[in-house]
């Protein structure tokens, strides 16, 4: 139990990957194979996201420092020369903590890798579905066994 509880996420990842792998191997329906591939993929994404998670950490967006923000507002009316153009005033570097507390923000790197992986994943799912549809046009079936029988006929 002491081994399992802190590492429960990895166990779920492995179960999802096993489910996806089994489905890609054993299911005879081509669409089910595609869904299995997507489940395998979400398993991998879950792995990356959960290794990037940190205890008591917030989302990876740097928040403005409340103290500086209040000071900035108080000084704004009397400030004779704004140091940036008005449209750029939203993200001045001095409003933000420097440097931000690394332990309070989750890991952004694993997230961006997986963000692009999801979009590429849907594109590859589309390719898989297109192939399945083409096979259906030829054989009028998604079932592997039927397709094989059609071919040997």
């Amino acid at each position: 139990m002491e081994e399992i509880v802190p590492k429960f996420n990895y166990i779920v990842v492995v179960i999802l990957m096993m489910t996806g792998l089994w489905s890609m191997l054993a299911q005879s329906n081509l669409i089910k194979k595609c869904i299995g591939m997507a489940i395998f993929q979400t398993g991998i994404i879950l792995f990356f996201i959960s290794i990037g998670a940190k205890d008591n950490a917030s989302i990876p967006i740097v928040a403005k420092e409340p103290v500086n923000q209040a000071l900035g507002q108080a000084h704004a009316p009397e400030g004779s020369q704004p140091q940036a153009k008005p449209e750029l005033a939203a993200a001045k570097a001095k409003d933000y903590p420097n440097p931000p507390d690394v332990n309070k923000l989750t890991n952004p790197l694993t997230q961006i890798l997986m963000l692009t992986a999801i979009v590429v994943g849907v594109a590859t799912l589309g390719v898989g579905l297109a192939l399945a549809q083409k096979v259906y046009q030829q054989h009028n079936s998604f079932d592997e066994d039927e397709i094989l029988e059609n071919q040997t006929k």
Binding site: K7, D55, T110
Partner: peptide, 29 residues
Amino acid sequence: WGDPQSPVNATVAPYYIENTIEDARVPNI
């Protein structure tokens, strides 16, 4: 799960967190 000192969290990722405002003024890392 959730260890902030794990290899994946402690090697290259802190650079991005610390420098995003300095380099690009973009709060969303």
